[in-house]
Write a protein that binds this DNA or RNA. Structure first.
Lengths: 128, 128, 128, 128
DNA sequence: GTGGTCTAGACCACT
DNA sequence: GTGGTCTAGACCACG
């Protein structure tokens, strides 16, 4: 799996790590039940601090995406990942924000579709 | 126009104000060239800090949504509002995040459509 | 409120802080809705690190005991504090452990009652 | 005797083993003076590391619950098992924590009694 | 002034 | 070798 971090993005690093891991799961680069790299090794690979990775992992546990045991962190079984009310509200809010910006900046449906397709294709592309 | 602020949301207040204003424009509650409430009065109405409103207004000027002159802030002509590269990248990133969460939490296309429709309807509804 | 930390205890400091805060709520030294000391000031008072207090506060938010907004951390309304299954299982496990030790070490019911009474009295005593 | 280990519990495995053994003694599944399974065989049965069992056994010797001789580990005579100050303090602290949580989460006396009864019944039930 | 993020580095617990 | 805890200190975002 290729995790890319943009240190200068407005998005906090731990959030980026979270999404990159979720993306890896979506792309099936990590199967259910599979173990993730250790906190320290991933931190080393990405050139970031251990605590930052740790925070990302723990938040993913809270979200129900990962689980941890005494050996480390693992991808949880798919059946267990469910969006609670708070997360659904969060997604709806985010969706509304995008739709507002789409209107305000007069981004055409075509452009928007194009973006979606590119992302979707990325999901289905072979991981590294 | 009704601006609703959720003080306990994770979204910063100035961001909420920005989106509520943009939404007002989308809903045509504010026409192009129309003046916005003064920083002080809006802050008073919403019960928030003057600096917060000020920040929201100024960021909207930066984004090209508003313009400022000696009399105050005004909605800019529609033709002038264009998303620059940075904003486009930001929107694409946000779109990717939603799509990742949609997949991870196995949110059905139907549910997603439903959300979009609700938001869309809100855009076309009569503002209070 | 008097928070006492035992740096040499086996119990992690953040756990101690959590229980001291809950105890303060039980003793009604902190009312519902009341604000807690800032992360940094409490850390200063206790002579511990800011991050440790922060962790305690955030875990209490997860547990539903506190809530946070942009101004800081607050005691949540009592009605909202409910033990979920995991927490109930945890308490039952802990209860079983105590009962096992009670039997093994032949601690008399009288001694045990005495301990409970002392703790209960402490709950009802005037805070600092 | 049936020793059940929950690998995903927050409680360290050696602690779980310790309590399961104490529980076995309470349930009189192991009489005083009786020998315990060898470190290797128990570790094998439970599918855990030998060192982990070893640690549990040695800590129980320290606590005065077991004694060790050249032939292995044995349940010590009941009269010899006494809680020292440190252990008493530990139990009182644990008791206080449970009582705090009971109050905070508004767990009723009835529920609590029920839990105690269930545990007590387990103590008196026929072992496996 | 409040919390949030990130880093660097140390020591410990568990298996 | 894995994660957990704690510290010290810096910089930033928010209101």
């Amino acid at each position: 799996m290729f995790i890319e971090i943009m240190p200068n993005s407005d998005t906090p690093i731990y959030t980026q790590v979270m999404y990159q891991i979720k993306k890896g799961i979506v792309k099936r680069e990590w199967g259910f039940g599979e173990g993730l790299p250790s906190v320290r090794s991933l931190a080393g690979d990405l050139g970031i601090n251990m605590h930052t990775v740790n925070k990302a992992y723990n938040l993913l546990v809270e979200e129900g995406v990962l689980e941890k045991n005494k050996k480390g962190y693992f991808v949880r079984e798919k059946t267990a990942i469910v969006a609670d009310d708070k997360l659904q509200a969060f997604l709806q809010e985010k969706l509304q924000e995008i739709m507002i910006d789409k209107k305000i900046y007069a981004i055409s449906d075509e452009t928007f579709e194009e973006w979606s397709d590119t992302i979707e294709k990325d999901f289905n592309s072979e991981g590294k």
